[in-house]
Simulated scan of single mutants.
Amino acid sequence: MFENSSVFILGKDNAVYLLEIDEGLRNEILQLFSIAKVQMVDNKEKIEFDGSYIPNSDECLYISNYKLADEILDAIRVPIGTEFFKKYNGSFPEIKAIFVGEKIERDDKEVFSLAFQLFRRDQRLKKTGINLFYHGSTFKKENDYGFNISKSIECYFEGDSLYFSLFILQGRFLI
């Protein structure tokens, strides 16, 4: 899953950016998101979201007829037409989520599959203090901007349904 996807950033302002990375890292991120999707959705009972039910570990919630923003779908359709994630006026845009996705044609219709990871402040490398990275046989200080991508996703979109396990997290970045 997601073999032909790019990796995108959803900004706090709901702008979509393409994350410029090398092929090896892209494949690693896509595999991580694919595994997270399987763990969240596959082999689980799907329960329609009603606002009151908290799912068990063998269940996930969904909202049918869910509409994603056109900017997100356009980025999946034509990744090369998406602006790169980079500094603007000396700083990077605030990150709301990281996502991957793909589009297939089924019965002359576009069918989208996307996985979203909510970006938390603790994923950002801090400019205060000292960030150490092990390289070779010693630690090196890193001063550049950076962030971490975790092993989980908060929601998965397929067709016209949005799947998630906790609405509290999922509801923080839906657009």
Rank of each mutant, 00 (worst) to 15 (best):
1 M>Q: 10
1 M>V: 14
2 F>W: 02
2 F>S: 03
4 N>W: 05
6 S>D: 12
6 S>T: 15
7 V>A: 06
9 I>S: 03
9 I>C: 05
10 L>T: 11
11 G>C: 12
11 G>I: 10
12 K>Y: 15
15 A>H: 06
18 L>D: 15
22 D>A: 03
22 D>E: 09
24 G>I: 15
25 L>E: 11
26 R>Y: 06
28 E>K: 14
32 L>I: 11
35 I>E: 00
38 V>T: 03
38 V>H: 01
38 V>F: 01
40 M>Q: 08
41 V>S: 08
41 V>T: 04
42 D>G: 02
44 K>Y: 03
44 K>G: 11
46 K>C: 06
46 K>A: 11
49 F>K: 13
50 D>P: 11
51 G>W: 02
53 Y>G: 03
57 S>W: 01
59 E>V: 09
60 C>M: 00
62 Y>L: 12
64 S>A: 15
65 N>F: 04
65 N>V: 05
66 Y>D: 08
71 E>W: 01
74 D>F: 11
75 A>R: 06
77 R>W: 09
78 V>C: 04
78 V>N: 03
81 G>M: 02
81 G>S: 12
81 G>A: 14
84 F>S: 06
86 K>W: 05
87 K>T: 11
89 N>V: 07
92 F>L: 07
93 P>S: 09
94 E>C: 07
95 I>M: 06
97 A>Y: 00
101 G>L: 02
102 E>N: 07
103 K>D: 01
104 I>W: 03
105 E>Q: 06
108 D>H: 04
112 F>Q: 04
112 F>T: 00
115 A>I: 14
115 A>M: 08
116 F>K: 02
117 Q>C: 11
118 L>E: 10
118 L>A: 14
121 R>F: 07
123 Q>V: 09
123 Q>T: 12
129 G>H: 00
135 H>K: 15
136 G>Y: 01
136 G>F: 04
138 T>C: 07
139 F>R: 12
145 Y>M: 09
147 F>T: 15
147 F>Q: 11
148 N>W: 09
149 I>F: 07
150 S>T: 15
151 K>I: 10
152 S>V: 14
153 I>H: 01
154 E>I: 14
157 F>M: 11
159 G>H: 02
161 S>C: 14
163 Y>G: 05
165 S>E: 08
165 S>A: 14
166 L>E: 09
167 F>L: 10
168 I>W: 00
170 Q>V: 13
170 Q>G: 09
171 G>A: 05
172 R>E: 14
174 L>Q: 07
